[in-house]
Design a protein around this nucleic acid. Structure first.
Lengths: 116, 116
DNA sequence: CTATTGTTCTAGCTGGACTATAACAAGTGG
DNA sequence: CCACTTGTTATAGTCCAGCTAGAACAATAG
């Protein structure tokens, strides 16, 4: 599981991490039942704090993507079903946005608006 | 121009404001050539600081949405052309996401991922 | 010339993100 | 049962982005 973290970005580390794992689950790089690296281990590998990793894990658990318990670790639960369609739609939208020179942040806030 | 700001949300005020105005321009509530409220005035109305309003305005200028100069104010430039199609696509995507119980924050980070 | 309005600068406050330790609880495997 | 692993919880400190406040400046309108 290769996930890259960039401390210089404005998006929080725990969000970046959650986003990376989430994407991995959706496109199949992580499969249901698979176990993630133990928090302390991953934290060491990424050179960040354990709590930051755990915070990312907990977000994903609340989304139903992970199942975690002490002693067992964090396991991909993948309640998300067939997100493939969604992933496709997202891809198309992003392409469209790029084509029209709409910046990432602009697109993001348009979506935030649409969610209201 | 009615734009609502919620200080309790985690999204910065200046972003909320920029997002609101941006959306207004795109769906036609604000038309090209129209002048926005002077920063100090809008700040007073929203009960926030002038700098926060100006920061939002400047973001939109960088996007080419606004034209602003001292003494004249901020005017909708609307370089964005026909974003109607994009707006439609966004709307569809958000509906799809809601249908699948994908949270707003999850969708946002999926899009951030797709932008890479 | 005066009033308006964006621009720039300086300064201070606050909350969230991140880190660092440490103790605790629930599992796993021998 | 025991040792080890791993998530959970709590406490505390640092740092920075966002917001506020006040003031002086520059360009534009009338």
């Amino acid at each position: 599981m290769l996930i890259r973290i960039d401390p210089t970005l404005s998006t929080p580390l725990f969000e970046q991490l959650a986003a990376g794992i989430r994407a991995s689950v959706i496109d199949g790089r992580l499969t249901v039942g698979e176990r993630l690296l133990p928090a302390r281990e991953l934290a060491g590998a990424l050179d960040i704090n354990v709590h930051t990793v755990l915070r990312a894990y907990q977000i994903l658990r609340e989304e139903g993507l992970l199942d975690m318990r002490p002693g067992r670790g964090a396991i991909v639960a993948g309640r998300i079903g067939q997100h493939a369609a969604l992933a496709g739609a997202i891809h198309d939208l992003v392409d469209e946005a790029k084509l029209r020179n709409v910046s990432e942040s602009a697109l993001l806030s348009l979506i935030r608006e649409a969610y209201k």
